[in-house]
Design a protein around this nucleic acid. Structure first.
Lengths: 206, 206
DNA sequence: GAACTGTCGCGACGCGTGTCGCGTTAAGAT
DNA sequence: ATCTTAACGCGACACGCGTCGCGACAGTTC
């Protein structure tokens, strides 16, 4: 079921094993923050964690395995979507959060994306995390419908709306490597809301 | 000026040098198509090109250098944006082209993105290529204004509109790794056009 | 607390990658 | 046609990555 190779041995989860895991995962985050995804190496993690290389190889197999464990750990922290009182405000706040995570150097989010190209398990873990986040954000659309900001008779596809609102951020900052634009979060949110109001995300074709 | 390390030696660009370059670049494309970006290795390229490893290292330095040369070569082929008679049709056609390039296995475009995370020169070359393509597509918006599909008094920011129309494709297929959705190109194009008609991409704030 | 066994530390090994120096070949100049 | 030298072929080398087998340690159970 899980992609995690052997990161949490169920046979003996006690003191030392758990301590080694915590040391290694902390080392991964520290190495990621210090050297970026480029400098994330098995040997560096092992050395920083004060653990032998073979141990890291045995339990996590490769860099992707380390990322999977870190991603899953990140997915367990409870995250709440913004609630500003309006759909446009919510999407703007969400975009600002996304922009912040993509612009900070080094960016943990960018490191995950880069690693996902090299490890299928890491890619699946990342997809799981983002799918959960988008699902959690669907309540933004529901609240907007309740407030009357969106028409109720044309049911809006929440996922499409959310992706339309957030995709330009990733596209500009990650793929096009553009400079940070302080107005982009608000503009992308506004465009998505206007499209939604025009029925762009209702199931009925034009 | 150019990021290309030493791919085109200006001292002696004649017969053998040019032939080696052509062999190596062909080998890069073939290896990319056969093994994906994962299996693109200097030794594999050298072997397939019938050239010694040291030659490849000397002229292209690393895998990123090879990609830079291939990307620049791809930018020299003349590409024309679609012209279907309507903005929505143009954007839909553009999105279908993008989707095709991202879905085909192995995907040359995805390989470039993955490589761009590991080589700054390759990333710059890719950014140059995409910036050119988006600039070429601005004519789609100009034609739409001429046809009266978009209001002329509120000047539409062509780049923002194009990114809003195409970003969901990359987001779904590359980052979220969703399955191919035959209706996504048309839907993303429609949403962008509706947002543009509502003035979402004009310079004036809300 | 004593036996059992999962987990870790340790060192050695194979392998692929990247570099270097030298001799050879061939492109460009006279 | 001959010379100069840029570019390539070749083999050897160093280095880091990943694996393996063994012994030691510590968590679990009785």
């Amino acid at each position: 079921m899980t992609d995690t190779p052997d990161a949490t041995p169920d046979r003996r989860p006690g003191g030392r094993t758990a301590r080694v895991r915590a040391q290694v995962l902390d080392a991964v985050r520290a190495e990621l923050a210090e050297h970026g995804h480029e400098g994330l190496t098995m040997e560096g993690v092992a050395t920083r964690a004060g653990v032998h290389r073979a141990t890291v190889y045995r339990r996590w197999r490769d860099v992707g395995g380390l990322l999977v464990d870190v991603i899953d750990a990140a997915g367990e922290i409870d995250w709440q979507p913004p609630d500003t009182g309006s759909l446009r405000g919510d999407l703007t706040a969400l975009n600002q959060e996304i922009q912040q995570s993509l612009v900070e150097r080094p960016s943990f989010a960018v490191a995950l994306m880069a690693a996902s190209f090299h490890s299928a398990p890491a890619a699946r873990a990342q997809t799981r995390l983002w799918t959960d986040r988008y699902a959690q954000c669907e309540i933004l659309v529901e609240r907007a419908v309740e407030r009357g900001e969106l028409p109720a008779q044309h049911p809006t596809d929440a996922r499409s709306l959310l992706i339309a609102a957030t995709a330009p951020l990733y596209h500009e900052l990650v793929l096009l490597r553009a400079e940070r634009d302080p107005r982009l979060p608000e503009r992308a949110a506004r465009a998505a809301v206007l499209a939604a109001a025009a029925g762009a995300f209702s199931d009925a074709g034009s």
